[in-house]
Design a protein around this nucleic acid. Structure first.
Ligand code: ZN
Ligand code: ZN
Ligand code: ZN
Ligand code: ZN
Lengths: 437, 437
DNA sequence: TCAGGTCAAGGTTATC
DNA sequence: GATAACCTTGACCTGA
């Protein structure tokens, strides 16, 4: 099952398999290979000069490393005085001197602020907060007084920059969140899926994303290839309450992760319980699909690999077509990481979900607008054919919508009837709650 | 017979014990130790912070350890901008930041560059050369001069470097040869031992080591435990011309291998036939013993294990003692692979073998010197107590000498009389030629 | 290896 | 335009 990245939810037939090694031969593949962390990097992904290693997870030079750290920990914000492409190396061989563009590029190539070791002082009094804290709705909270003073001094500057900053903050927030989500997937938290409550329970309980910090990464991941149990032919592996502390049930875990992802959004907490339930029940599958499809694309179209190293091959052409359904559009428009993040937020903020209260519709609609604006702005700045590209990206939302409908239909037709016959403690409630709607 | 690694040469023979662990209490060692290395060190002798162990023979912290290595291997020299007492902890509680004084202090407290594992490139750095040379010659220069002189001596360094290269080449050659020898032992070449000519024939014929390439490894080795025929109680297994193509007579094969090993040495071909015969007849047994004992040590096997997986268990304490005779000293001094290789070459180059021509004595003597020099140098660089360790290693040659004498005496007393009575095609000539001398 | 730290060099801005 | 005060940068250092 590509969407979960798990070929074994209950058994192999439940949902179409979408990935296979065959997929490599897809004629659509033309992504330029981003270099993997295998060899010594040669070129700084930010400025193009000689890289001297990986810094904050990105092949980069010493200068860009220091720059990223400095700017993140500083209180300043920058503004490009040219055309916001000073570090676009497709347009020029050498970047121009521009801190705004340089910082932007650092984020775009994926510099990870979580790799930074900041103490509390630093973390609380700096730009770091912007990138690592979720964006605060309209006005910023009170921070320490020193910063308050600084802010007042720079009020004028700020108002000029505010829109740009706001969009940047949105992106920074999503970048940060995604990093946390990935940590969560890799962490050793692994509840017994059959004992885990349903969606409602998931929504009522505390946010689990931060468990990653408490639990730390799963020991021994990624697994060695001989440890990776191939998905059994009969698909029975995950039937029943078999639970290995270091093996995750990825369909379950990815769905849960997506719900936790939703729970970190500020607007989400302005919804009432019923709306929360309705929204997550509907959108989680599509969000998860986008997540897994994007990961697959980034990994060059191979079988999706979960953080533990397990793969989910699929069996036939039908499954293959089902996969292409959401992966192909991503590849076609060469989606980039920030675009993906904004798109996922847009998927989450779906005001068209049936049965939402009017209030929820309003809130969610406003939120979607925010992310859509940010995506549009981002496209304008970073794509030659900005508006057209934006339109292409938005179409992906429709694809995801159709895809999740198909998956649910298949589940209801083929899986649910079997699940009914299963012993009660064989049922994974989160999956059933989400898939049967 | 443990020394051959085969308890079945012709039959099981008991060797008397002549060597006991007591022998390790060499009376020569009584140097007054300046500082004991017994307990965990608490304080870095250079900077006064918490030491995390001994580095380069000195209780020191990780920082000072790293600093010493870096500065020694660098070409730079430093200069104190204050009064050369920045690391004088009697004058201040915390040292000042000063690389000149820190490096100086490292030398003063006795950090030993010979404990550094440097490759050739690194070793050619001037700072390293200077300090190692000084320590070797036990000069006590004024420390400040050391660094001054370093620059002026860069030319000398180059000539010293060539010696280093030569020593490294010697080691490289032995490492390569050993790999070939091991291949040979594992290969499927397995002549009928009773039809095989004697030592003279072995010397006259082509080098067999390279047969390994032609024959390839023996199929099915190592044998499964159920395939390993336990040595028969009566020791008759290898009596007679029984020959299995995939079972080797290890006493015969190991001796043959040792002669082939000798034949690969350049100096060996400068000897006349008579000297070749005399030399190999005498030294092959000891060389083979060293080989088998070392393998046993490496494999943590009390009983020597042959490449096919067969073992040679021994029956009682007497056999055990006989084995310990040459294995125990190896374990005691924690012999390392390169030391073993050099030691084996030294064993081979024995100018004291009776009846050698004067010419041969000269050649062999020179050769032994070469390997002994290399071993000494290697100990100096890699062992904290280099010279003492070297002495310990050389003592092993004496042990091997006594051991082979005992083995031969036993053979002549107990085995040879029986062999005489055997049918002619039951005799393994290589063994008889070597053991009856 | 890659975090954070340091600081000389060079650039920028403020002031005269 | 000169001078000083301040900021930015990145090579290099340190240690886990
Ligand atoms: Zn760079
Ligand atoms: Zn710019
Ligand atoms: Zn120290
Ligand atoms: Zn000093």
């Amino acid at each position: 099952m590509i969407q979960s990245g798990c070929s074994t939810s209950y058994e192999q037939v439940d949902l179409p398999e979408i990935f296979s090694p065959k997929a490599k031969n897809s004629p659509e593949k033309s992504t330029p290979e981003p270099k993997k962390r295998m060899e010594r990097p040669t070129e700084c992904l930010i400025c193009g000069l000689k890289a001297n290693g990986y810094h904050y997870d990105v092949a980069s030079c010493n200068g860009c490393k220091t720059f990223f750290r400095r700017t993140l920990l500083s209180e300043k914000s920058f503004e490009c005085k040219l055309s916001k492409d000073c570090f676009d190396l497709t347009k020029r061989k050498k970047p121009l001197k521009c801190r705004a563009c340089r910082h932007q590029k650092c984020i775009e190539v994926g510099m990870n602020p979580l790799a930074m070791e900041v103490d509390e002082r630093e973390a609380s009094s700096s730009n770091f907060k912007k990138l690592t804290k979720r964006i605060k709705e309209e006005e910023s909270d009170e921070e320490c007084q020193v910063i308050e003073v600084v802010r007042k001094q720079k009020e004028i500057v700020k108002s000029v920059n505010s829109l740009e900053n706001r969009l940047q903050n949105i992106i920074d927030g999503l970048v940060y969140l995604e990093a946390k989500v990935e940590q969560f997937r890799k962490c050793s938290y692994n509840p017994r899926w059959t004992e885990f409550g349903g969606l409602e329970h998931l929504l009522q309980t505390e946010c689990r994303i931060s468990y990653a910090d408490r639990y730390g990464p799963m020991n021994g991941w990624p697994l060695q290839s001989h440890q990776v149990i191939p998905p059994p032919e009969n698909g029975q592996k995950f039937f029943g309450p078999n639970h290995h502390p270091d093996r995750k049930h990825w369909f379950f875990y990815n769905l849960m992760t997506t719900v936790e992802y939703a729970k970190t959004f500020m607007f989400f907490h302005r919804l009432n319980s019923r709306d929360k339930l309705i929204l997550t029940r509907y959108v989680s599958l599509a969000c998860m699909n986008l997540h897994v499809s994007y990961s697959s694309m980034v990994k060059h179209f191979e079988v999706p690999v979960q953080p533990d190293g397990t793969q989910s091959p699929f069996r036939d052409d039908e499954h293959y077509s089902a996969m292409v359904m959401s992966v192909a559009p991503l590849i076609r428009c060469q989606i980039q990481s920030i675009e993906y993040l904004l798109l996922k937020a847009i998927c989450l903020c779906n005001p068209a979900v049936p049965d939402l209260s009017t209030n929820a519709q309003e809130i969610i609609s406003k939120e979607r607008e925010k992310y859509a604006d940010a995506l549009f702005d981002h496209c304008l700045r970073n794509r030659p054919e900005g508006p057209a590209h934006f339109a292409q990206l938005v179409q992906i939302v429709d694809v995801l919508e159709r895809q999740q409908r198909i998956q649910r239909d298949l589940h209801i037709l083929h899986i649910a009837p079997r699940v009914v016959k299963l012993p009660k403690d064989y049922v994974i409630h989160v999956i059933e709650d989400i898939m049967n709607c």
